[in-house]
Design a protein around this nucleic acid. Structure first.
Lengths: 250, 250
DNA sequence: TGAGTGCAGTATGTATACATCCATCGCTCT
DNA sequence: AGAGCGATGGATGTATACATACTGCACTCA
């Protein structure tokens, strides 16, 4: 399917949503800046109706904030907001892991997760780790987390996790790439991978509390990466999500 | 302000949203039933544009589900979904309580909460408890939970709690009224009020783990009420939210 | 000179007409 | 008779015109 076809096949609403999200995450629309519908029409090239829907969707997503008198503005986040969002995700993923452990999962449904675990092992075994390997790690890591959440077999929970992870700075892979520029990179990756191993083991042995605790701690690696990267001001361009930070904290 | 003025002052979108939500919760729109835009136009009396926005909002709220080929259907929930949603809320409220405890709150900001606690004490002291007192309890209980969540001082967390609590069967007060018809009513209310007391004490003493644990357990009272009420089939009309249950489990 | 009011411009809220896509039903051909 | 294709009805997706509400500025009056 050519790119042209792909562009034709998706709705104007989705196209507008993608274009506006890109503008926000790339920082071309600054935090706290009001974004009018007409402006959005200019940007996206579609008419007001789909633009409106796209704006509403982006508000749901958490990237925009409704103005009481009407209209939307780009949401501004503090560093604290970001850290809380990461803790929030960790808490929810912890709940998912506990559900999986307490309710039990079949050996069959655990198989893809173990396979994914093995693939990740291969990647982190390299020393030093290439940039390509880091990139592959991001993909595989996202897959691991998705599989894990599904094991909870709880639609309401998965829905909320997806929602929280949609915030670009709260997803499990948000700061892995930034990490690639840190001297502690390899060590943190090894620790993270050990968390993965532990949670699978805990689920297999029906140790709910252990599974929950390790997933919570796991999310704190992301928080640690974020803080390190901000403090060192290393490779901020690897973390486009930080365009949403309130300017003072940037 | 007269009712007419009030009706005039809110947007058509909100009016449509309220009307449709009412139809869903009252069971006039059955779970898994497709709801077309034109049908919604007939129901609400407003045009397609605001109806569409209302449908999108209701999807976000979790009452509707998007159909891949377009349009929406009323979401159907299993009893397990409901129990999971309650556990989810408890987990999030637990996190809020822990944040409040660990980060510390001023004596001044704790005051409204304690006042609310005192009011609740007055209400549960009656024996037997009148229906009016139950109703007042529902209101005051919602206020207590709202104040508690605010003490977390975490906008992202409060946002998620509000979202989860918007599901009619997941809110802290969802099954309190149903409880009024149970023989165990007074006892459960006293236990719940003791949870309230403990969490305030824990926050005051910066006992994060205790605050978190008690709020989690607190939510399980709602789960217990739900199960009791369903098993006894007592006063199902007090729980309109159950209109969303998949028919087999009803 | 300051405050209040009114007007103009521009934004969003709403309705509707048009385009497009999908799904279903019926017909035809093998 | 069954399967596949085509047509038709009805749904959603989109664009735009119109109504209305808000905001900011200027002018006037105290």
């Amino acid at each position: 399917m050519s790119e042209r076809d792909a562009e034709r096949s998706v709705s104007q609403t989705v196209r507008a949503q993608l274009a506006l999200r890109d503008m926000i995450l790339s920082g071309r629309l600054r935090p706290s800046e009001r974004i009018s519908e007409l402006q959005a029409v200019d940007i996206t090239g579609v008419s007001r109706t789909p633009v409106r829907l796209a704006l509403v969707r982006l508000e749901d997503e958490g990237l925009l904030q409704a103005i009481p008198s009407g209209g939307f503005m780009v949401k501004a986040f503090t560093e604290r907001d970001i850290l809380d969002s990461i803790e929030l995700r960790g808490t929810l993923e912890g709940l998912a892991a506990r559900f999986a452990a307490e309710r039990g999962v079949s050996a069959r449904s655990l198989e893809p997760l173990k396979e994914c675990l093995g693939d990740l092992d291969q990647l982190v075994r390299q020393d030093p780790i290439s940039v390509e390997a880091f990139s592959a790690y991001v993909t595989m890591n996202a897959r691991f987390h998705a599989l894990l959440n599904e094991l909870s077999a709880s639609a309401p929970l998965i829905r909320e996790i997806d929602r929280v992870s949609a915030l670009p700075f709260a997803s499990p892979s948000a700061f892995v790439m930034a990490q690639s520029a840190l001297p502690e990179a390899h060590q943190i990756l090894l620790v993270g991978q050990d968390h993965h191993r532990i949670v699978v083991d805990a689920i297999e042995n029906r140790e709910g509390a252990r599974a929950e605790a390790v997933m919570r701690e796991h999310s704190r690696l992301a928080a640690r990466n974020l803080r390190l990267a901000i403090r060192n001001r290393t490779h901020l361009e690897l973390m486009p999500a930080l365009a949403l930070l309130k300017s003072s904290a940037e």
